[in-house]
Design a protein around this nucleic acid. Structure first.
Length: 753
DNA sequence: GAGTTTGAAACT
DNA sequence: CAGTTTCAAACTC
């Protein structure tokens, strides 16, 4: 649509689309055509994921898998969403945007552009029923945003914070609410995310008081309402008519800062009220919502603070783009209402912000890589709260697959309050995002920084590539779908926004070889957890390494082992020799299983006596903690013990773990969180693994795994099997289903196009 | 900080 | 698909 209006819109959208991410998406190809056509939102979602996968936050990845399927529309909307409705506009606009994006090297811009598109598209496209999806996506977006340095830079720092918070909130809400309610809530949250930006502003205004003030203060309530309304509006807009969506889009274009939401907002408010009522009926109470909101605000603030410091740049950008409102997002109490409106964009921005548009999947890797540093990041992000906890809680409560997923997503951002729970699923992503941010901020020399980060557990790990140009999976950054940043000590790095095309092309190639190459290596079983959790309820989601390791000398007790590195127990898929993985042995004997010691001993003998001792201690600890949990341990309980155990056992892991232990959460990225979870899970893991891995033979699924039976377990100690059984027994089936979904959802899948 | 070990990724 | 090489992280000194 070349009409002037469109052009205007494009200008607003351009920000989104201009972003490298957008280009990415386009490059991804499948999406591009779609954009213009927009026929299948689902595809778009895939494309979206793919693009984002590169830079998008990984967190979603695991959960997303299933989500992606659901999200398709969602993700697509970002790109295609517009296209669907405004196909022509989109095409023209996108092109323009692309150009702009190219001009803008700043990832922030990209993110911004990208996000808005997504948010809008989602809103417009998705039907009410899809609210859940949205909810899930929103968290993801948030994550992305948060994760991406750009996001911070956007200066919408407030928005970032809020978004993350929202994610947290969502889970809480979802928990409380029935699945349906959850859906609504999620949808709300999504809208809220948008609003979060505004909220952030409020928060900024509120600053110190934020948490309490938010609820108490009328403003907060209003903001909330606005969020809710937005969410509602979104819902309404979705199903009914594209017109509304268009309005939204148009509004932004007209007033970037202030989206043309107001009308919708009123409706949304009503809708919100209705939703609330429904919630009440369901058993959800407005209180609950308020709590969730409060939580969100908290998170938002925290994030905002964190991001704000970092992302002043973006704020400027956002301000300029979105609203003429005072440059600082914070200074805008008056603007707040506007901000709310603006918020709509912000969410989008947030999503776009995820500097690494395509990262999504990789976040896992990042998370893994970030292990050490992640903790710090998390802390900074959530002010020490860990996402994992949130996830855990979500898992425990969530029974439904979708809800879980949404929760998982949220969890990453969510505060850790619950405890140390490490959220298996989402963690990765957040970490990655966090890592990105921190990295960007860190000015120090790459290696030194890295080391510092690692040692401190602060920043995400960064690559040190010399020959791969950071365009191969050897590069952690590239593998994680993230651009290399300052902390990286890589040489001749092409994994930078400047070389987006190259990166995308390379990525495509790799994906062509292995569609799952960028998929999270460790698959959280949030889904599985849910499944398992359903019965056992809280078994920490068992996570597994998708491919499994091939360790021969490390006994899966060192980070050489991807399973161990990811804090996941070895599974049938592993071809490792002498597996002693503290998180769970290939055999199925969980390291945690102290009882398995005899077995362990044999294995240990193979390895090192020292390790044995450490392991034993760990195991004992685990057992002590887990024995209770062994069956249906709640994620929380599991997480902590696990965390400590693994770390305690080995000095090596400790870095990340230690940091984790303290902050536990934030960075919980796969590595951290997983390990923790894993230990407790280990027992469950066998189950989960079987469940997770589609590859796993049914026999294994149904049974623990032949291998497990084979190797270890002479001892009845394998109580774990029962666990696994318990956890998985009923859940396994569901879990399997979920797993299947999850797999596709991974970023890798999206790129598959 | 340099060198070694390790196992994944890439290549053949 | 299996074997080999390349690569960079993890680890050790």
């Amino acid at each position: 649509m070349d009409t002037p209006e469109k052009t205007q819109i494009t200008t607003s959208l351009s920000k989104f689309e201009d972003s490298p991410v957008f280009n990415y998406i386009n490059s991804l190809s499948p999406i591009k055509p779609v954009k213009s056509l927009h026929i299948t939102q689902a595809f778009h979602s895939l494309s979206f994921a793919s693009l984002p996968s590169i830079f998008t936050s990984p967190h979603v990845s695991s959960n997303k898998e299933s989500r992606f399927l659901r999200r398709h529309q969602y993700s697509d909307p970002s790109k295609s969403g517009f296209s669907s409705e405004n196909g022509n506009k989109v095409s023209s606009e996108e092109e323009a945007d692309l150009d702009v994006a190219q001009l803008y090297d700043n990832s922030d811009e990209l993110q911004e552009n990208f996000d808005p598109g997504v948010s809008i598209g989602e809103v417009s496209v998705e039907p009410p029923s899809e609210d859940l999806k949205f909810a899930v996506e929103l968290p993801r977006r948030l994550r992305y945003d948060c994760g991406s340095p750009e996001y911070e830079a956007t200066g919408t720092t407030p928005s970032c914070g809020p978004q993350t918070d929202q994610t947290s909130e969502l889970p809480g809400i979802s928990r409380k609410c029935s699945p349906e309610h959850e859906l609504h809530l999620q949808g709300i949250h999504q809208t809220e995310q948008k609003k979060e930006a505004t909220d952030c502003v409020w928060e900024n205004l509120m600053s110190d008081d934020t948490d309490l003030l938010i609820f108490h203060s009328p403003i907060d309530t209003e903001a909330f309402k606005g969020l809710m309304q937005k969410s509602l509006d979104l819902d309404a807009s979705f199903s009914p008519s594209l017109d509304e969506v268009q309005k939204v889009r148009i509004d932004p274009s007209t007033q970037p800062g202030e989206t043309g939401v107001p009308m919708e907002i009123n409706q949304t408010q009503e809708n919100l009220n209705e939703h609330v009522d429904v919630d009440n009926e369901v058993g959800m109470s407005a209180k609950v919502l308020s709590k969730g909101i409060s939580v969100l605000y908290r998170g938002m603030r925290r994030r905002c603070l964190d991001f704000e410091t970092v992302g002043a740049h973006r704020k400027d950008l956002d301000d300029s783009s979105n609203s003429s409102t005072s440059g600082g997002g914070q200074s805008e109490e008056k603007v707040a209402p506007k901000d709310k409106q603006l918020v709509l964009f912000k969410p989008g921005r947030d999503s776009s912000r995820c500097v690494l548009p395509g990262i999504g999947l990789h976040l896992n890797a990042l998370a893994i890589s970030c292990k050490d540093s992640k903790n710090v990041k998390h802390e900074t992000l959530s002010s020490g709260k860990s996402l994992s906890s949130f996830v855990a809680s979500s898992h425990s409560q969530n029974n439904g697959q979708e809800p879980n997923e949404s929760l998982s997503l949220v969890s990453t951002e969510i505060d850790i309050d619950p405890t140390e729970n490490e959220v298996p699923l989402v963690e990765d992503v957040p970490q990655a995002s966090a890592c990105l941010v921190t990295e960007e901020f860190n000015p120090s020399s790459p290696k030194k920084k890295r080391r510092k980060l690692e040692g401190e557990s602060e920043a995400c790990k960064r690559c040190n590539c010399k020959k791969s140009k950071c365009l191969k999976l050897y590069c952690e950054c590239f593998a994680a779908g993230v651009y290399c940043i300052e902390p990286c000590s890589c040489q001749e790095c092409f994994n930078k926004p400047i070389h987006e095309d190259t990166v995308l092309a390379t990525r495509k190639q790799i994906e062509s070889r292995n569609p799952l190459a960028f998929a999270p290596k460790v698959i959280r079983s949030s889904e599985t957890a849910n499944e398992v959790g359903d019965e056992s309820s809280k078994t920490p989601a068992s996570a597994r390494h998708k491919r499994g390791c091939n360790c021969k000398k490390s006994s899966c007790l060192k980070k050489y082992c991807e399973c161990y590195q990811g804090g996941v127990g070895c599974s049938i898929n592993c071809r490792c020799e002498g597996c002693k993985n503290a998180f769970g042995r290939k055999d199925g004997s969980a390291p945690t299983e102290t009882e398995t010691e005899p077995e362990d001993d044999t294995e240990r003998c193979e390895n090192n006596g020292v390790d044995k001792i450490s392991e034993k201690t760990e195991i004992q600890n685990k057992e002590e903690q887990h024995p209770n949990s062994a069956l249906p341990i709640t994620p929380l309980a599991i997480c902590r013990p696990l965390l400590q155990l693994p770390f305690s056992s080995k000095s090596k892991p400790p870095r990340s773990f230690l940091s984790i232990g303290s902050s536990s959460g934030l960075c919980t990225g796969q590595k951290y969180g997983k390990p923790n979870i894993l230990k407790p899970q280990t027992k469950f893991e066998t189950q989960a693994q079987t469940i997770y891995d589609d590859d796993m033979p049914e026999i294994l699924r149904g049974n623990y795994s032949p291998s497990t039976g084979i190797k270890t377990s002479p001892n009845s100690k394998r109580v774990s099997p029962p666990h696994s059984i318990l956890g998985s027994s009923t859940g396994q089936r569901t879990g399997r289903k979920l797993i299947l979904q999850s797999i596709p959802s991974f970023p890798s899948l999206t790129p598959q196009h």
